[in-house]
Design a protein around this nucleic acid. Structure first.
Lengths: 189, 189
DNA sequence: GCGTCTACCTAAACCCTGTAGGCAAATCGA
DNA sequence: TCGATTTGCCTACAGGGTTTAGGTAGACGC
């Protein structure tokens, strides 16, 4: 009996790949076991249950996404930073639909607090520094931007923007231009 | 043997209630059968499969949501109409989280084309009439608004706005004000 | 080389989906 | 009103996912 060399990390990564290929809801311990040519029960030596697998994939996705955003934003400010942030976000959602879905997985408060989700919030606030917003406007802006980015990625992934022949890319740029204008409009002089 | 008096409509309604109570992903034929005190197999006389149940709940939710939005928007124009539209949308998502989730259920193209989703698109365009946008700006704006509304409802439902003490309601109004300003800015003179 | 640990196994219980076939209530036609 | 037909709900069963209990053999420390 040759051992498969499983580990929580390998399982998480394989689960993330499976999510991108087939959708996050198709990520099951059974499917993962098949992928490693191993019996399902064997996975329980590495993961408490399927909930833990999903949580780990969510954390991985949040981490990756935060890394990409941080990299994209580095050295930029103002509208430039806003665009880079937004594009990194959308690009990740398009390149890794399953992982992106996973990143929206409902985490329990403790796990969420210890996750890269915190970095997301910090980076969003950092972007807004260029717009000179005071509290509570900054919080409002964080929520608005989060809503747009997430909403757009979601609707795009659901195929909602493929009915008309207006390119999604153009709408995206238009939306970001509008947001930039709206934020500049809110700046305290 | 007393008959339970099932029908696709009753099952759909009960499914929608179950969704609001426990989440759309908890809507299963088994749970529904329990609720009616009936064996699972009996449901297959009324529904082709669980996919059909979910589709029907989605269509119901889209219909209800479109009705509420239409009612809210009637007789209003400009910013007034935008606010009414947005509030109707958010209120529905808060009052019926499960149904709202169902409304985002991926429908096959034909079903989607015959659904109330079409009315949603029409109403969004109607709102924008007050802003004097020409194509393709109108399409861009439809997408932006859809993203914000959906994104906000989603993040709010996920509890994403409960960490700071800034009230979600205030951020919502702020966001709508910003969108209104952005759209007015885009108007062709 | 021996003992321990642990990675993976078999077996089995439980839940959800879906199909096949049966019986009895409802309904309809004469 | 009664027989025939339809149909609503049933039992039985197969298939797949989750999870636990307990066993065996490979890996590793001494």
């Amino acid at each position: 009996m040759v051992r498969a060399g499983l580990s929580p990390e390998r399982l998480t990564l394989a689960g993330a790949e499976l999510a991108d290929e087939a959708g996050f809801d198709q990520v099951t311990l059974s499917a993962l076991a098949r992928r490693f040519d191993v019996k399902v029960a064997s996975l329980y030596s590495h993961l408490k249950n399927s909930q833990e697998l999903k949580t780990r994939i969510a954390l991985l996705a949040l981490e990756e996404l935060a890394d990409q955003v941080a990299h994209a934003v580095a050295g930029r400010a103002g509208k430039d930073a806003l665009m880079a942030f937004a594009n990194a976000y959308r690009d990740y959602a398009r390149a890794h639909p399953g992982r992106y879905e996973a990143a929206r997985f409902r985490l329990d408060p403790q796990t969420a607090a210890a996750s890269a989700g915190v970095r997301h919030a910090q980076m969003t606030r950092a972007i807004l520094r260029g717009y000179n917003l005071t509290e509570p406007d900054q919080t409002h802006a964080v929520r608005m931007l989060g809503s747009v980015f997430h909403g757009y990625a979601n609707l795009e992934a659901a195929g909602g923007f493929s009915h008309t022949d207006v390119a999604s890319q153009e709408s995206w740029v238009w939306t970001l231009d509008s947001l930039d204008a709206a934020l500049r409009n809110r700046a305290t002089p």
